[in-house]
Every structure is written in structure tokens, then in C-alpha cells.
Simulated scan of single mutants.
Amino acid sequence: MEWLQQYVTAGDGLRLGYRIYDARAGSDGLPLVCLPGLTRNARDFHEIAETIAEDSEKPRRVIAIDYRGRGSSQRATDPATYTPVVEAQDLLTVLDSCGIDKAAFIGTSRGGLILHVLTGLAPQRISAVILNDIGPELGVEGLRQIQAYLRSPVWPTSWAEAEALLKSLHGTDFPALAEADWRTLAHAVYAEREGGLEPDCDPAIAEGFASLDLTQPLPALWPQFDAFPDVPMMMIRGAHSKLLTPETVARMTEHRPSLTVITASGQGHAPLLHLGDLPAAIRTFLYQAN
């Protein structure tokens, strides 16, 4: 389906980009807002956005956001603004621009952390939550795994090389991916620039994360998790994820017994939402939410 590229200006003057997938006429479902991972962008959600917007039973409008410094959004002059707090404020700017008072949200990795921040800024705007391989506590092994490939970036010179590179980096954790899936992933991660391909984000974002001191655990967000309003919530965990541990998921269900937990078999951090049984699970969850 066709989608519309839109822009809005953040509070500090930065241009933010986002995609709108308009549902077919007659839709009355809550809009769905999609938030990507640390260095990722709105293209990660293209396939699931089409599925939701074109759903035969209850289509709904889908908004997929590029944070500052990623995808279609402008890169910040001050890298210190690449924080979940600032990005949550940017999210509110996008919601206001779209006229969205309340929405269902999918937060992948960084996107889920931004939703934790949103509980302190505007919890009344959250009507349902899907956390994709993220929780209030992050596994150190998973953080180190992310740091490892961010510290030594390789820029492929062709799309075939990009696919092969991603498969070499992540193939062990994602045995469920077919060749076509690696191709889709490559086109989501990389953008064509003069001289070849490069990750579609400001290098300062990766550099900032790569420099984190992981000898000490990062602060946990349990108070923010407990501050989520009493709305439907689903957790998707990659079966091979090292960032979201089974222990954290178990504790999350203790804090929130109504939490729906789905395991993405054959996937690691973070699961591709258009594969396997995930689209059906997401659609069913959204039906129940509204």
C-alpha cells in the first residue's frame, strides 16, 4: 500500500520525519504508533504497518516514527540530545501533529524505553502497549553484544554485501530468517550514500552507545514500568535474545499478571514483527485493546 511521508518541527527546531499508513475508509480502531530501536528507523515496521492498516476486520491508521538523527529525520547538532527523554518529547510533538490524543504503541528495544519515559510525561495517551524484546532491565550480555558490532562498523559496498554482513553478524540468533528476510532487513538498516551504503543514522548515536561503561549495570526502570496505566500490554521476546532475559520477563509478569507474553521462535534481538505467528498475535491483541 502507499504511505505518506510527513515532517514536523521539534521544540528545538529539528525536523522530524514519520510515515503515515492510512487505514481504509470506515476504520474506527485506535491508531498504532511504531517506535524503532536505537539506530533503526521507520522502515523496520513497513510490512507490519501494511498488515495492520489493511486488516480486513479492523484496519487502523499506523504511524512509524524516525527519531532525531535516524532515517528521514534531521541529525542533531548536539549529540547530547540523543536521549530517551528528548525522544519521548519528540514523540509527543509527532502525536500532536497527527491529532492523536490516545494510541496503541509498539516499542522495539529503544522504543520500549521511550514508552517507559512516556509514563512520566503523558500516561493518558497510552491505550495499549506492545514491548518488542525490551523491559525495565537490560541483560548485560545483550548490551555487550550490541556494543561489539557498533564499535567496529563495516560499511558494505553493495546490497548483496549488506545482506551477507547482516547474516554473518546475526545469523546465529536469527535462524528463522530466509534469504528474502535478510534482503528486507538490509534495506531497512542501510541507506545509499555517495560511495556505498551506510547505516541510516547519525554515527554519533552508535558511538555514544559503544562508549558506555558496562562494568556497572544500567539503571533499572521498574518504577516506570509500574507506572504504565492499566491498559492491555503484550511482551514479545526473541527466543534467542540476550538483552531481554527470561528472568526479567518472569519478574514483569509478577508486577503485571495480565501481561501477555509471546515468544518469537528462531529470532533474537529484536524480532522482526512481520515473520511467523507475530502478525496474527499482534492483530488479535489490538482487536482486544480496541
Rank of each mutant, 00 (worst) to 15 (best):
R61K: 13
L95W: 05
Q124V: 05
L118I: 04
L121T: 01
P123S: 00
G120M: 14
A128S: 10
A76T: 11
A80G: 04
I65Y: 10
Y67S: 06
S109N: 01
R70Y: 07
A76Q: 11
E87Q: 15
L95A: 02
L113C: 07
A88N: 08
G107S: 06
I126V: 05
E57N: 10
G99W: 02
I130M: 09
L118H: 01
T93I: 12
L95T: 01
A104N: 08
I114F: 02
I126Y: 07
G99S: 09
S109H: 11
A88K: 05
Q74K: 07
A80P: 03
G107C: 05
A104K: 01
S127T: 03
P123A: 03
A80H: 10
C98E: 15
G112K: 10
G99K: 04
V62N: 08
I63N: 05
A122F: 02
R61E: 08
D55M: 06
G69K: 06
T93C: 07
I130E: 00
T119L: 00
P84A: 05
D78G: 03
E57W: 05
C98M: 14
R70F: 01
S72N: 09
V94K: 02
I65K: 07
C98L: 12
A80D: 13
I126M: 06
T83A: 05
S97E: 14
A88D: 14
V85P: 03
V62A: 13
I63E: 09
R110M: 13
L118E: 00
A103V: 10
I65M: 11
A64K: 08
K102L: 07
Q124E: 15
R75C: 11
S109R: 10
C98N: 11
V117C: 10
V62Q: 08
G99V: 04
G111L: 00
T93L: 01
G120Q: 13
D78H: 02
A76W: 13
T81E: 14
R60Y: 03
V86L: 08
P84S: 05
A103Y: 05
G107L: 06
A80V: 04
D101F: 06
K102A: 15
I130N: 01
Q74E: 15
E57H: 12
Y82L: 12
K58T: 11
A80S: 15
S127W: 00
A103Q: 08
T108C: 07
P123I: 01
R60T: 04
S73H: 02
F105R: 07
G120F: 08
S97G: 13
S127H: 08
L91W: 07
T77K: 15
L95Y: 08
K58Q: 15
H116V: 02
I106L: 15
P59R: 03
G99Q: 01
R125D: 00
L121M: 09
Y82V: 10
K102F: 10
G71I: 00
V129Y: 03
K102H: 14
L115I: 08
I130D: 07
P79S: 05
L118D: 00
L121I: 04
V94N: 13
I126R: 00
V117L: 12
R125M: 01
S97A: 15
E57S: 11
P123W: 09
K58L: 15
L115H: 00
